[in-house]
């Protein structure tokens, strides 16, 4: 296997990483936002449910969460299609989403805490319901204040996609294992190359978040 072929292998691996990343990104933002909303809701049941979920899932190693999804869900006959590679992709996405959403929710909650209480009072005084107050006034501001820590959460998730290779997902780490198997003479360069792949993706993400931070900054 020569260099162009190795590169092709790595690009296909990187593509696998990105697919998983984007699905989990959207999923964890949606679920994380819902959880954060539940955390600050006036209904005790919702608050308790959200904080219980967060405390359980956040404190479970991601490998175990993946294990539960990859082996537990099929055991419960929860499947998403005939092909096992698609199933495994969904299982891994669910695991990453479930896990990362906890961190997104906690980050958002800390952002919510920084929003002056007058903002919520003004929203309620205008007649907005709790959900509208959260959706129109509190969360948009909370998101903007926590863009930097949210960036760290998302970069951590990018790296966490690597665990999915242990559960029937082909991504960057699979490409690395593959390449090592084929080119034993290039082990160290291959390891460096893999690290470089993650570094590249993480740096791009970092730039995106820097941009968002500048673009969406709130003057007070």
């Amino acid at each position: 296997m020569d260099l162009p072929e190795l590169l092709r292998l790595f690009f296909s691996g990187m593509w696998g990483t990105l697919e998983l990343f984007f699905v989990a990104l959207i999923g964890s933002f949606v679920l994380g936002t819902i959880l954060a909303g539940m955390r600050v809701s006036p209904t005790p049941v919702l608050r308790i449910a959200a904080s219980t979920y967060i405390n359980v899932v956040r404190n479970t190693p991601l490998t175990l969460v993946m294990f539960f999804c990859a082996f537990g869900l099929p055991f419960l006959d929860i499947r998403f299609g005939a092909s096992s590679s698609f199933n495994s992709f969904i299982y891994a996405s669910i695991a990453l989403t479930a896990y990362t959403a906890c961190f997104v929710a906690e980050t958002l909650k800390s952002g919510i805490a920084t929003i002056p209480v007058g903002q919520a009072e003004a929203a309620r005084a205008v007649g907005l319901t709790f959900g509208q107050t959260l959706g129109e006034v509190i969360l948009p501001q909370a998101f903007r204040t926590v863009i930097p820590p949210l960036g760290s959460v998302i970069i951590a998730m990018l790296k966490n996609t690597s665990i999915a290779s242990a559960f029937n997902n082909r991504e960057l780490i699979s490409a690395m294992r593959n390449a090592i198997e084929l080119r034993g003479d290039l082990v160290i360069p291959i390891l460096f190359g893999t690290a470089l792949g993650y570094l590249l993706l993480a740096l791009i993400l970092g730039r995106v978040f820097d941009y968002l931070e500048r673009k969406l900054v709130i003057l007070r």
């Binding site: 780490i173 699979s174 593959n178 390449a179 084929l182």
Partner: peptide, 9 residues
């Protein structure tokens, strides 16, 4: 098979 192994390839 094992991810990235020769048999898998």
């Amino acid at each position: 098979s094992v991810d990235g192994s020769t048999p898998a390839q």
